[in-house]
Every structure is written in structure tokens, then in C-alpha cells.
Design a protein around this nucleic acid. Structure first.
Lengths: 217, 217
DNA sequence: GAATGAATGAGTAGAACTACTCATTTTTTT
DNA sequence: AAAAAAATGAGTAGTTCTACTCATTCATTC
């Protein structure tokens, strides 16, 4: 048998972390070399210890799983990232794929799926949660649109991202203007630009997008 | 030593369920007599098997933890409910307290906390997550207001709850009107009544409330 | 049977957001 | 240095939601 592969886990829910740890260790094929309760310091640890796998929660305090994956990718590290998420948000998924994530698992369909994923990825494969695959099939028509959305997010400027961030906190145009010391008109214009770029139309669509895609910008 | 106490667990995230199960069983003092991946059938199982504890996720498909607790309370069962939640939403907490919940634990501060809770509750106590206690202290001034909000939710009528439910799905007044075959004005009036009852003021406040308190109505 | 509450609908005024177009200044890129 | 992109601001029209007041019908309660 091969040497045990090293895995680090990061999730802000301790009980969840515990569950992942148990399942991974029980299999006898892997070794947990690091555990984290937030996204903080995770990338530094990966860069220093170069584990084989990194199992990351998408939504975490300090630094989201997606951000960590981005850093791993930028640094050209060999650590294979597996994302765990609660949400069937396809935008997160496309973002993850574009960052070279090897596994994407939904928390509500994941126990033995996790081991299958590790197995498959060990041999150079890619693993996607069954629940998400269904989602992908159902929305075959929309998938192209959603990829465009993702590309569009990359085209957002710093100010636009900033405003999206504040919108995700339910702040109004007026509140954002006051917070950033700029005119309401400027904020309003930025909002419109974002809507154009993301092709969002109708009442509250932008606020909704901001709230449902917090981790994406 | 006493006989092992029976516990049932319900959570729609299998890995989480697994973590809870491991921790509870490791202690040697408790026995898992039932596991559920959704809120469905949970109450029936509790009514039939009368376990000592029920560890329930607040947000679950089919039937939320809060609903299950309500049924336990209505049926006058002795099963002690412990709620697990991801969200520091105090409204959920107040609702839980009003339903006679014995433990309220945040998922992001819970591992050994869970055993302490079971221990404490066994001896007739009540357990509240440390993270939430802080929250309660910080908002001491607001706490009265929030309790009023909770009371007010009980005063909502069936139609009003229905509209809140649709608002939580980001539906607009027009969409709700079409879906319920009533006039936009009627929906608008209901919205205003709800705002009055819940003392919500300003742009998007109602939509925000609906989205952040889905499980409450 | 009168009173109350609930569901339904409308009128009006104002606030906030959407959806356009346009202009000026600054920064970045080439 | 010239061109392009970004940040800032404004004009105007239309939509949606907020915040009131009011009326009618129906069911429940007392």
C-alpha cells in the first residue's frame, strides 16, 4: 500500500470538521495534517507543508475557500483542492472549476461521497457531487449564460466590487454613498454598470445577486 | 452508572450528522436511537419512541427544527429538544425559548459544547451557546424589542404569513398577486400590515426580514 | 344581532431603485 | 503622448415599494 496522503481541512463548523476528519481517518488511507476553523492562515500552511489535498468550506470567516483555491492556483502548488458547500449555487461551482478545483461536494449529499472523491482525484480525476450534476443537467440551457456571468464578474472594477460587497449587507444607495463619501448618483451609476455587466434586470435583482453570491467577489 | 439515554438526531447535512453522532456515542453515556436527513417523519418517531433528547437542525427540508419542537411541545412529550443552528439570528432563539427548548447551540462553536449541553440538560438545566450569550449581552437594549417582534409574528394572519413566505423567495408584489390570484393592491396592503405589526421601516426591510427569518413563520 | 377581525380592494404621496443617456476628471495602458 | 478604462457626477422617465387613509365583504366571536 502507498504511503498515507496528507490532507488539511478548513471549516468554521467544528462538528462538521469533526465529521470530515472521522470519515477520512477511518478509511486508513489518509492522514489529517492540519485543521482550521477559519480561512485564516490556511494558505500559508498549505504553502509551507504542501499537503496532497485541501478540503475547504466555501463560506468561512476571514478567507473563503474560493479565495484560498485562487491563491493555491496562483502559487502553482500541487495541492488538490476539494470544495465543500451548503449551497447549490452554480456560480460558485463555475468559479471553482475555473480555478482548477478537483472536487466539488454538496454538504447535503456527502459522507461516502467524500471518500469516493478523494479516491477518484488521487488517480487524476475530478469529482462533482451527484446533486450538482443533476442541477447542471437541468440547467443545460442556462449553463452558458451562467459561465458568462462568471466571466463578467471578473470584469468588475474595484469600486464596483466594493459596492456589491456593501449591497450584500443590505445597504441602500444612500447608505453606501455616505459610507464611501461619494455622491448617491455615483453609487447609482455604479449599480447600473454592474447590472449591465452581469445582465441583471428588474427590481431587487442586484441586491439579490449580491446576497446570493457574496463569496464570488 | 445510569442506563444510556436515548437520543435522536435530525440534520440534512450527513457529514454534520456523522460528527454529532460520533461525539455523542464516544462519550458512552448516550445511545443514538434514530437519525434523520430531513424534518420528515421526525415528530412521528419521537411520539412513538419517546427518546430522552432530540438534537435538531433549525433549517431542514420538509419540516424545520422549530416546527418539530412546536409539535413536541403541543403534544406534551417529555423529550428534551436541543436546537443546532448556523445562524446567530436572535429571533430564532427567542422563538425556540418560547417553545420550551432546553438547548440552543451554534454550529460554529459546538463540539464539546454539545456534551456539556446534554450533561447540563440531563440534570434539569438549560444550555445556551456561549457565542449566543455574548450576542444576547451586546444587544441587551434591543432584546425587549426582539421579543416583541416574536410576539408580533404570532399575530400575523394566514394570508400575511403566506405573503411573507413568497417574499422570502424574492418574489415581487406583482408576482405574488399573480400567484395568489389577488390584486396587487391587496398584496401591497398585506405588506403594509405586516410592516406595521413587525415594526419594520424603510426600503427593503420587509424582504430582508422575510429572507432572514424564513423558519419563523 | 352587533362587534371584531380578516381579506379584499383603492387613492395618493413620496422614497428608492431601474434604465437609459451624457459629461468631466483621473488613472492605466499602450 | 495618445487612447482606453475607471471613477465621478448629473438628467430624466418609469417601476416598485413604503406609508399613510379609507371602504366593502365575509366570518367569527360575544
Amino acid at each position: 500500500m502507498d504511503k498515507k496522503k496528507k490532507i488539511i481541512i478548513a471549516d468554521d463548523h467544528p462538528l462538521f470538521l469533526y465529521g470530515v476528519k472521522q470519515i477520512v481517518e477511518e478509511s486508513g488511507k489518509f492522514e489529517i495534517s492540519g485543521e482550521f476553523n477559519s480561512g485564516e492562515d490556511v494558505f500559508e500552511f498549505i504553502a509551507n507543508t504542501k499537503p496532497d489535498f485541501a478540503i475547504l468550506d466555501v463560506r468561512m470567516p476571514e478567507c473563503s475557500g474560493l479565495e484560498i483555491v485562487e491563491k493555491i492556483s496562483d502559487a502553482g502548488l500541487a495541492t488538490k483542492a476539494i470544495l465543500l458547500t451548503m449551497y447549490k449555487n452554480l456560480n460558485y461551482f463555475y468559479k471553482a472549476v475555473s480555478l482548477g478545483v478537483k472536487g466539488y461536494i454538496l454538504k447535503d449529499t456527502a459522507t461516502q461521497e467524500l471518500l469516493s472523491a478523494l479516491e477518484k482525484i488521487s488517480y487524476g480525476g475530478v469529482f462533482i457531487s451527484e446533486g450538482l450534476q443533476k442541477q447542471l443537467k437541468n440547467r443545460k440551457i442556462d449553463s452558458h449564460k451562467q459561465e458568462i456571468v462568471l466571466l463578467s464578474i471578473n470584469s468588475l472594477t474595484a469600486s464596483e466590487r466594493n459596492i456589491l460587497r456593501l449591497l450584500a449587507e443590505w445597504k441602500s444607495t444612500k447608505e453606501i454613498a455616505e459610507e464611501l463619501f461619494i455622491s448617491e448618483r455615483t453609487v447609482s451609476n455604479h449599480r447600473n454598470h454592474i447590472c449591465e455587466k452581469l445582465n441583471l434586470k428588474g427590481a431587487n435583482r442586484l441586491v439579490r445577486f449580491a446576497i446570493e453570491n457574496k463569496e464570488l467577489f
